[in-house]
Nucleic acid binder design. Structure first.
Length: 116
DNA sequence: ACTCTGACTATTT
DNA sequence: CAAATAGCCAGAG
């Protein structure tokens, strides 16, 4: 399993993982990148999310940076949408920051079977 | 082919 | 503890 973040294959994996984020849970770009074997390519995860809007099953609002900050909110149709969606799922968000982030954190490397 | 940019992160000042 | 620095790598002009 040495996943090389070559190209689309990497994007596909990102979408596959993001799509499996449970309701009311959140994860980070780095966590996904690491799960895919590209911990250093966390940026690519974010880049992938940029095109995730074409994938209806990819809840981009559940993906935040490592401290639970809604850094990607500006990429949503509405600036507040990301926070609204999270709050709607029971995730407390204040000032673009997820409260008790660790509590809602969902680590694919742990929750998932690491088996593609 | 080159340069700049970016939904990131870890490390060092 | 806040700010700067360095890796990272794919897309766009």
């Amino acid at each position: 399993m040495n996943y090389a973040p070559k190209t689309e294959n990497f994007f596909t994996k990102v979408y596959a993982v993001a799509a499996q984020i449970p309701y009311g849970r959140v994860t980070s770009y780095g966590a996904i990148a690491k799960y895919l074997g590209a911990a250093k390519s966390s940026r690519m995860v974010g880049w992938a999310m940029n095109g995730a809007h074409t994938h209806s099953e990819v809840p981009a609002h559940r993906v935040v940076n490592r401290v639970g900050l809604l850094t990607g909110k500006h990429h949503f149709p509405q600036t507040n949408l990301m926070q609204q969606l999270l709050e709607n799922e029971g995730v407390e968000v204040v000032d673009d920051k997820i409260l008790a982030f660790k509590k809602h954190f969902w680590d694919p490397s742990v929750e998932l079977s690491q088996d593609f």
